[in-house]
Design a protein around this nucleic acid. Sequence first.
DNA 1: GGCAGCCTTAAGCTCTGCTGCATTCTGGGC
DNA 2: GCCCAGAATGCAGCAGAGCTTAAGGCTGCC
Lengths: 339, 339
Amino acid sequence: MLDMRRMQILRAVVTSGSVTAAARNLGYTPSAVSQQMAALEKEAGTPLLERTGRGVRPTDAGLLLADCATAIGRHVAHAETALADLRTGRTGRISVRYFATAGARVAAPALARLRREHPGVRAELRLTDPDDPLPEVKAGRTDVALVVRRHDAPPVDGLRFVHLLDDRYRAVLPPTHPLAARTELRLTDLAEEPFVGSELPGPCLDAVLDACGSAGFTPDFVVESGDYATAQGFVAAGVGVALVPEMGLVTAPGTDEGRPGWVVREVVDPEPVRSIWAAVRATAPEGPVLRAFLGALRDAAAEAAGGFGGVDGVSGSGGAGGFGGAGGATSAHPGSGPA
Amino acid sequence: MLDMRRMQILRAVVTSGSVTAAARNLGYTPSAVSQQMAALEKEAGTPLLERTGRGVRPTDAGLLLADCATAIGRHVAHAETALADLRTGRTGRISVRYFATAGARVAAPALARLRREHPGVRAELRLTDPDDPLPEVKAGRTDVALVVRRHDAPPVDGLRFVHLLDDRYRAVLPPTHPLAARTELRLTDLAEEPFVGSELPGPCLDAVLDACGSAGFTPDFVVESGDYATAQGFVAAGVGVALVPEMGLVTAPGTDEGRPGWVVREVVDPEPVRSIWAAVRATAPEGPVLRAFLGALRDAAAEAAGGFGGVDGVSGSGGAGGFGGAGGATSAHPGSGPA
DNA sequence: GGCAGCCTTAAGCTCTGCTGCATTCTGGGC
DNA sequence: GCCCAGAATGCAGCAGAGCTTAAGGCTGCC
């Protein structure tokens, strides 16, 4: 195999026109260059330079190799700039898995900011459902996954979790419900109420059950819907009450009008909470893109958490909590596993 | 600058999937590969491999560099095959300068054989006139030049001359000339004849003058034409006699018919001769292409010299001795210089 | 004919780079 | 739950690549 280092030296000799000039340009002694050329000629099996009295002259083979060295040099320079772009975050790609209610309020704004700050980065967002995204992250098929996970969940080896926000559950009641008159409810106030389930088994539902359990009761789910928007519709229809996380509330920000279908009330003592985390590979080197995206996620989460200051009677009509308005299966509950 | 050797090792690691496998494929120990990868990461300034428990996984930067290494590897392989083609004579180029009367009988058949034996070789033939081709050869702008040169001419430094043939001069006489009755003339027989000059000053004319000088006379040029074909026309018109080298005789081989315009007779005692040589750079490495072409030249010259066995009365109609039939300025006399 | 410039060769030395071995860590099997 | 195989890395050591200095041969110019 031809030594590319020597080919670069040959290129210098050919462009400079002499061994001495090439040595000067490269910071070597003429002797070093001469020896390298002799070695390269042995590798090539044919003369590359024609010793013509005073000075040298490239042979056809020498010109060929020098041209090739130039092309390779260009290629390497290209690789270096591409590498620098990657290193500084000017280019790159990131693969993100999210679940529906986290899409609109967290993933989307974070991605928007990432694309603003790093326009050259290609991002691939995919809805988690119905798979558990954690194996995808571990296997390296995705870089970041938004998951719901308990604070005290056991660590998963190979993964690192960064906390984004605690999404507090609110009680959703029919406006005519007696408890709707109060501004704040205790969880036990709902112990005897018929519940509209909005979550499939998973960490989200676990958060609700845990809170109810510590409040001393088990909710009586009279109907189970797969997503928060539908559950709110059931509440509006008077079927029962529901516990819906803030990010799952159907409440287009700034849109307060509409026919009143339900009211939202804070719940305390205890307040059910689901924790939303970003999962990344523990071994993944944190480049500028990943760092920027995690930062954007955190900021978007803080924004989303702060945006629910004075939630009160809101009207619900349509529109699921999903990303892009696809009113399908909301509320994915990626399991952080029993492991 | 990125070390391309290390990039090739990185490529092996990425394609193999592990340091150990790459080491096995490359014939190294895993330790060596690991150290090279560490060095390359330092050069790149960013992690290239993600250490993931058991085994490694390329990062985006690692994949980028590995892809680039693949491209470079292809490029080098391409260069190697091109080099091998050049070395074995499958490709190449050769630049040849010739003079008109040598074109048809020597350069053309030699080139034809070269193209038959080395179809991939590009040849560039150029007529010498009106320049002296020797500086072109010395400067490397041409590889081979056909020249006329005395056997005892002093060597030109930097050039090597290979003898191709001695082109013997023949007497060209009007058919009605008294000497036309004889089969062979002595040069002195022509001493008193009016001569039709066919050559510009140069080694060809020198050969004639030398021979005449040693025969004891100086030819009396009553008319000077620049080429052999025209000179033969003058002879046919009865203006005088001419001395024309065999290769300059207008005699389409195999075509004996036509209106008789002149006769050709051998001349001896002494027989004027011009020596035709191929000049190449002394320092030029003799690759297969050059070697093959010189061999073909020699064979073509032998063929051409042998083809004039029984020259006798021949008819001349048209057709110059030039290459391709361009009946222009024939008889170029490249000077081998007074040096 | 002498001199300057260029390329080369020889000897020596530095440093890269590979080997061998020990260590650490993970993942699977018993 | 323990143990072992497999994989990567770190360290000492050595061989060889590669650079430098010094000297020599050659060419071209003054």
